[in-house]
Simulated scan of single mutants.
Amino acid sequence: MSNSTTGEIQSTPVSAVDWEPPVPPTNLIFDDGEPLESNRHRIAMNALIRSMLVAMANRRDYFVGGNMFIYYSSQQIRNRDFRGPDFFVVLNVDGESEREGWVVWEENGRYPDVIIELMSPSTAAIDIGVKKDIYEQTFRTPDYYVFNPFEPESLQGWRLDWERGYQELNPNPQGWLWCQRLGLWLGTWEGTIEDKPGIWLRFYDQQGNLVLLPEEAAFREGALQQLLRLLAVRFGQVPVEVETRLRTQDIHQLEGLVEVVLEVESLEEFINQLS
C-alpha cells in the first residue's frame, strides 16, 4: 500500500530477532585498516552522521555509525567478512553506550533501521548486489539507499515490504527520497562542507527544510539572535509569534532580513515584509 503524501510502501514493523551464537566470540576485529574510497566519501559520511545530532537532538534512544563493522552471524565471522555500512542508524536502543562496532547478539538481535552506502565505481556492484541482498534478506533493514558522492544523479533507495522484499522508492519533484523510519527526506544539496564545495547527500525535514550540521545550526542561531536584538533595539519587545516565524527562516533569509529591519519604519511593516 502506498502513502499518498510520500509514496513509500507500507511494511510490517521489524521486530527484534531472538538469536545469538551458541558461544559468542570475544576476539572480534573492529578495524580493518582500510580508509574510505576518497576524502569526498569521508566528508559525505561524516556530514550524514553529524546531521543526526541535530535531527535527533531531543532523543537519546538511537545509535548512528559509519564505516563500522556489523557482526551478525558466526559464518560471517569465520569468513572474515567484516566491512560494515558507510552510514547506519538503529532506533529505540541505548544511545549512551560506547560501541566499537555493532554486534547483533549483544544488542538483543537488533539490526539497522536505515542504511546508506556511499558508492564508488569499485563498490557499486556490491552495494546494489550482495550487500543489498544481505540488508534485505538477513538484516531486514526497512530503508536502504545508495549514493555516489561524485555523481549527483546517482541516489537510489528501497523500502522493505515484508512479503515482497525491497521495493524501489520514487523521488519527489525535487528528486528526494522519503525515509520512513527517520521521518526525513534524503536528497542532494549544493554547498560547501569542510571547505569543499560540491553536491552532497543531506537530510531534509517533512516541510523540506535542510537538516543542519551542528556548526550550521550554531551559525544560524547566532544570526537569529543578532536579528532579534536588532528588532528589539529598533521597535521594542519582539512578539513570540514573530520569533517563531523567524525560526523557520534559513541562514540566507535571516541575513537578508537584517537589511529589511534597517529599512522599515515599524514592526508592522517588518512583519508585512516577512510575509
Rank of each mutant, 00 (worst) to 15 (best):
C179P: 03
V54N: 08
P197G: 05
F203Q: 05
L227V: 10
I115M: 11
L257N: 01
D205S: 09
G236T: 01
E255G: 05
V64I: 14
G208S: 08
D161N: 10
K132C: 10
E163A: 14
C179H: 00
E265A: 12
Q180K: 10
V211F: 01
D86G: 12
E269T: 11
I134L: 11
Y111V: 03
Q207V: 07
L186T: 04
N79R: 15
M68P: 04
D32C: 01
N27G: 10
V240Y: 13
R202Q: 04
D161A: 06
F219I: 09
Y71K: 05
Q226I: 14
V23K: 14
I199H: 04
A57H: 11
I199N: 10
Q137H: 14
Q137G: 02
E107Y: 01
N148M: 01
N209W: 15
G7K: 01
L257I: 11
R164Y: 14
E136W: 02
E215G: 03
M45S: 15
S11C: 12
W185I: 03
V261H: 06
L201S: 05
S154F: 00
Y166D: 07
S154P: 08
G198Y: 07
L177N: 03
R229V: 07
V93L: 08
V17R: 13
Q207K: 15
I29C: 09
S4Y: 00
R83W: 04
I199K: 11
A44H: 02
I9D: 03
L274N: 05
P24L: 06
E263R: 10
T6P: 02
E8P: 00
Q253A: 11
R247G: 05
E8T: 04
K132E: 02
E221Q: 10
P21N: 03
H41A: 12
P24K: 08
M1C: 12
I134D: 03
G208C: 09
G175H: 08
T6H: 09
Y204H: 04
E100W: 13
L48R: 00
R40G: 06
L177P: 03
Y71L: 08
S15G: 11
R99C: 05
L231E: 10
V114D: 06
R83G: 10
D113Y: 07
R181S: 11
D205G: 05
L184D: 08
V89P: 04
L230A: 06
V104Y: 00
Y72L: 07
Q167T: 08
L267D: 02
S122E: 12
Q167E: 13
I115K: 00
D161Q: 07
R245G: 15
R220S: 01
E255D: 09
I251K: 07
S120P: 07
I271F: 00
E215F: 08
E243P: 01
E268K: 11
L267E: 06
N58T: 14
E37T: 14
E265C: 05
F150T: 10
E34H: 09
L28E: 00
Y145N: 01
Y71T: 01
K196D: 11
N39H: 07
N172I: 01
F219T: 13
F203I: 10
Y204L: 08
G236Q: 11
V23R: 15
L228Y: 03
W158I: 05
D94L: 11
E255Y: 05
D250E: 12
